[in-house]
Design a protein around this nucleic acid. Structure first.
Lengths: 181, 181
DNA sequence: AAAATACGTCAATATGGCTGACCTAAATTT
DNA sequence: AAATTTAGGTCAGCCATATTGACGTATTTT
């Protein structure tokens, strides 16, 4: 195989003439790269989680509680797009083992607001650190514009109906995750 | 996504903006965008697959057979990083329902070389089309450099040990793989 | 002839989803 | 005040996808 280390030949103009046709050629490279990149991206945390007796589901729950302290159970369900029964199972373990605590809502005492404990935050940060190392390495390899372009590309990949909500969610957590009263 | 309203007290000290110092600061935006983008990216195929009684596992198997006609079972296992038992169940369904055929290797009659049928290719292309639509939309939104940058970013996210192998795989399939049915 | 290889299969187990039903406590509506 | 809705929890069972381990069979290699 010839060398195509990371100066991949631009294969966009591969179908110059028939580009106007409706039969769009699948964008195989991005499809496959997303598969492999995501697999490795979640693979690092998976290895650590296994040592704690946790799985990917625990990671997602812990992540979003850490990023959005005080989040309501109902809102977490919306973000994760799972049922409360599915959430309940992993959440119970995280609570029982001291990674997450629940507090009664002040205004509405039916609510169980979710917070990570110091222990939970430590684990969340450890896992995020692994992923950050990978991302930082990728960005460093490619150049300073990579972060911004990657962010915009990934945002554009999100369902249009959800995108603004997701970006708000990220931005809000970026500011510290609370307020908004 | 429903409106998310957090009403809760400040719990965590505000992070120091996006200071350049934070070499240890997690890259939250990419971490979360990857989660949401990948979820939607595989969501489109999932909906179609459900109508066929298939799942995501069938998609992956069908995809890589379609892209690498004549692939050996052993090689497919390496790509997917699953066990032959896991593959076996899914592959059997795809064969039984006429999406994939197996042929004895010419040189080595122990091998079962895998090919998609026309029916299988049609499904693979339909699923790839959905994902391509999403990617093309994202690329169109961002600009002409997006495809190239996204490709390089995603490639750089792959484990260094696997990367060259993956890129070879993609490049080889891009050229048409090997013998067609 | 023996060993290694490619593949298949049986059995048991784990994870993480799902639906449906039902429960309590608290808030809201009537 | 009573009725209803909401937030959340829980029990029970099912499904899809993954795992490990053991074993079998045909074929190739040594």
């Amino acid at each position: 195989m010839a060398d195509l280390n990371f100066t991949l030949p631009p294969e966009r103009p591969a179908r110059t003439a028939d580009a106007a046709e409706g039969a769009d050629e699948p964008i195989w490279d991005i499809i496959e790269l997303l598969f492999f990149a995501y697999r490795d991206f979640v693979g690092d945390p998976d290895d650590v989680l296994a040592k704690f007796g946790f799985g990917r589901a625990h990671h997602r729950v812990l992540h979003f509680i850490n990023r959005n302290p005080g989040i309501k159970v109902a809102d977490l369900l919306v973000i994760l797009k799972i049922t409360k029964q599915s959430l309940g199972r992993v959440l119970k373990q995280l609570v029982d083992e001291g990674y997450v605590v629940q507090r009664e809502g002040e205004n509405d005492r039916r609510q169980r607001l979710l917070f990570v404990t110091p222990k939970g935050e430590a684990l969340a940060l450890k896992l995020a650190g692994l992923q950050t190392t990978r991302i930082a390495r990728a960005v460093a390899e490619i150049g300073p514009n990579a972060h911004e372009t990657a962010r915009r590309f990934l945002a554009a990949m999100i369902d249009a109906t959800d995108r603004d909500e997701v970006l708000r969610l990220i931005a809000r957590a970026e500011r510290g995750g609370r307020t908004r009263r």
